[in-house]
């Protein structure tokens, strides 16, 4: 069996090569290229500038506005999506005659690409002829500006991303709910607990790990949410949807400043990791407590 020794490496080589080159290396490339500035045009050379790109960022109010937009989006979108995903999971946990069909219908947006969802919702939310304003008119609400308003644009983005994403996160929570032993519910029912009691003392504690996973994964996904900004808002109005991911895209592909773009990507990665670490530290299992 000596000749077998090289076999696993041969089998692994193509996939590992791909992962190292196209998943791992770009992370370090971003770090490295954030230390350069690129000249204009395709022939423009680059020169090493150390941490200058970062220094410029920290002195740039556009960057700080982008940080603010990212913070606002993060604070709104993650709790909204997780609360709705949990609510939907509790709703669809119920055994009902048509539950399989109902679940399938709720899962439809998972199969729709985000650009499609963005284009359709962009028309739904069109201030002049959109479907939503048409429906609001029926119940006597005046037309809303949605994506064209500084106050509402970020909420419109939350709406689009949530319509597309909530069923996906719901799936994990639904699986978590179905793993909870029925005997626990029966026991607490005997003790006279109502629906809220069962939710508070059985469901939530036992769903905690799943919820933490969904929170972390959802947060990471929303930090790179960029499609609705590319197609609909271009970061506006007045930069209210100009999140860091979009600012990185814009710096590189509209202003051709790839050093700045890479510096933002690097910072965004660091921020994402820090926020996730914080979530795990604060909300993770503290053994010996709670149970």
């Amino acid at each position: 069996m000596r000749s077998d020794k090289h076999v696993p490496y041969l089998f692994l080589a193509p996939a590992l090569l791909g992962l190292v080159l196209f998943r791992l290396y770009p992370i370090f490339l971003a770090l490295w290229e954030s230390l350069f500035v690129t000249g204009f045009g395709p022939a423009g050379g680059r020169s090493f500038v150390g941490l200058e790109n970062f220094q410029f960022l920290f002195e740039d109010f556009v960057f700080w506005r982008s940080v603010k937009a990212t913070a606002i989006l993060t604070i709104i979108i993650n709790p909204v999506q997780i609360a709705l995903a949990l609510g939907l999971a509790l709703l669809l946990q119920r055994k009902s005659r048509n539950i399989r069909l109902i679940r399938s219908l709720f899962l439809l947006p998972i199969g729709v690409a985000l650009p499609i969802a963005t284009v359709i919702w962009g028309l739904m939310l069109n201030p002049n002829q959109g479907l939503i304003n048409g429906m609001l008119d029926v119940i006597g609400v005046s037309p809303q500006p949605f994506l064209t308003s500084e106050a509402q644009a970020i909420w419109a983005i939350v709406l689009i991303a949530t319509w597309k994403g909530v069923a996906f996160w719901m799936l994990f929570l639904l699986a978590g709910l179905e793993d909870i032993p029925k005997s626990l519910y029966e026991a607490i029912r005997v003790d006279g607990a109502n629906w809220f009691g069962r939710l508070r003392y059985v469901t939530m504690p036992l769903l905690r790990r799943t919820l933490l996973f969904v929170l972390v994964a959802d947060t990471a996904a929303n930090f790179v949410l960029i499609v609705p900004m590319i197609i609909l808002t271009q970061g506006g109005p007045r930069q209210t949807t100009n999140v860091l991911m979009y600012e990185a895209y814009r710096s590189g592909f509209i202003f051709q400043d790839f050093g700045r773009s890479m510096a933002i990507v690097t910072l965004l990665t660091a921020i994402t990791l820090a926020v996730i670490a914080l979530q795990v530290l604060v909300l993770g299992d503290r053994r010996g407590q709670d149970k």
């Binding site: 196209f22 791992l24 992370i27 490339l29 971003a30 790179v224 960029i226 590189g252 773009s261 990507v265």
Partner: peptide, 24 residues
């Protein structure tokens, strides 16, 4: 360690590396 690396790679959102990958 290689399997752990494989697991880690799908924690990295593709959008996060799109711009450096473009440069590559």
């Amino acid at each position: 360690i290689l399997f752990a690396f494989v697991l880690l790679t799908f924690a990295v959102p593709p959008e996060a590396i799109a711009i450096p990958l473009f440069s590559m």
